[in-house]
């Protein structure tokens, strides 16, 4: 067992592009659920539209990458509005059901064979993200590597990470500025009791829609980065579990906290890769009985997600407020 490799693998995942994309999804979800109390189970739909907006604009329409980014963000906003207008007046649980269905609808639509000409359908779509990498200040020759051992990135990866984490920081500051304002106070009052907010003259529907759009845009930005990172998009990358990973990250870090979703996303990928790496090494051990080795072999990824789920359950039992949340606040009910 080479534990140093397991740890560096995990650390690599914790700061890598996947973690920052998850962080953006979780920050958006925090805006929805953490501050406004909107039970959005369709966060992945916003990410999909960000990713496909960018990909389709560049690959199918032949637009520039930057126009593609803009289209991705516009589509995420449009999704928030079309989703929100008819459903935000519904009960919280009905809203949750509609959101998960809406996200599935867009995934099935872009992945359908009828959409091959536009989105590539069930095949993935790919485009040239050169305009993004042209700005890369890190030398990116075939031998350029950054980091040490398995904690190592190419120049391109490092550039995605630099831009991505900068965006995570900017978005976090933006959310902080919004939420500490009287506007944020209204959001929290809606989360606590929307009739109380109404009785004090707040137009609850408008605030919910604003929160839905902002959180959706942030997730859409995550989708855009995902498309740039992989130079394309694949409908299978936007299954409902992505939303639940974002929830896991949010709950791990701490609901309705500024830094919680970011820490949670980092921790989520750290744990996931830690367990997966560990299992992969375990399977290779000669002392392990074949039956057990065969059981784990090839299932490391799935099992590690399951273990993260288990960690989440334990967290809810022993530290329900997440890493940075306040326990006092968590224990207040009604």
């Amino acid at each position: 067992m080479e534990f140093d490799i397991i740890i560096t693998n995990a650390a690599r995942a914790a700061v890598g592009p996947e973690a920052l994309i998850l962080a953006l999804a979780a920050i958006g979800l925090n805006m929805h659920f953490g501050y406004t109390g909107l039970l959005n189970f369709g966060q992945v739909g916003f990410m999909l539209l960000g990713a496909y907006g960018t990909s389709v604009a560049v690959a199918t329409f032949g637009w520039s990458l930057w126009l593609g980014v803009l289209l991705g963000l516009i589509l995420a906003t449009a999704f928030a509005i079309t989703l929100g207008l008819p459903t935000l007046r519904l009960h919280a649980l009905l809203f949750a059901i509609v959101t998960i269905a809406a996200a599935e609808i867009v995934r099935i639509l872009v992945g359908s064979t009828d959409a091959i000409g536009l989105t590539g359908g069930p095949l993935s779509i790919s485009f040239d993200a050169g305009a993004f990498y042209d700005l890369n200040p890190y030398p990116d020759g075939p031998n350029d590597r950054y980091g040490a051992g398995t904690f190592e990135f190419t120049g391109q990866q490092l550039w995605v990470m630099t831009v991505g984490w900068t965006l995570v920081a900017l978005v976090s500051v933006g959310v902080f500025l919004l939420v500490r304002s009287p506007w944020g106070r209204v959001l929290k009052s809606i989360r606590e009791d929307q009739d109380a907010a109404r009785s004090l003259g707040k137009n609850v529907f408008t605030y919910k829609l604003q929160a839905l759009v902002i959180g959706g845009l942030i997730a859409g930005l995550g989708g855009v980065l995902d498309a740039i990172k992989t130079s394309g998009a694949d409908p299978n990358g936007f299954r409902p579990q992505v939303t639940f990973f974002a929830y896991a990250a949010l709950l791990l870090g701490g609901l309705a906290t500024y830094i919680g979703p970011v820490l949670g996303a980092i921790l989520f990928w750290f744990l996931r890769e830690l367990i997966e790496s560990f299992l992969r090494q375990l399977v290779a051990q000669t002392w392990l009985p074949d039956a057990i080795a065969n059981f784990f072999d090839g299932a490391e990824g799935i099992i590690s997600v399951g273990m993260v789920g288990l960690a989440l359950i334990l967290l809810m039992l022993f530290r329900p407020q997440g890493i940075v949340g306040s326990r006092n606040e968590m224990q207040l009910n009604g």
């Binding site: 933006g174 500025l177 919004l178 304002s181 009287p182 506007w183 944020g184 106070r185 209204v186 009052s189 907010a197 004090l200 003259g201 707040k202 604003q210």
Partner: peptide
């Protein structure tokens, strides 16, 4: 504070400033 009417800071565009 939530009860106060006509709050500038409750408008999305003004909130961050």
């Amino acid at each position: 504070l939530l009860g106060a009417p006509d709050q500038q800071g409750e408008r999305l565009w003004a909130a961050p400033f």
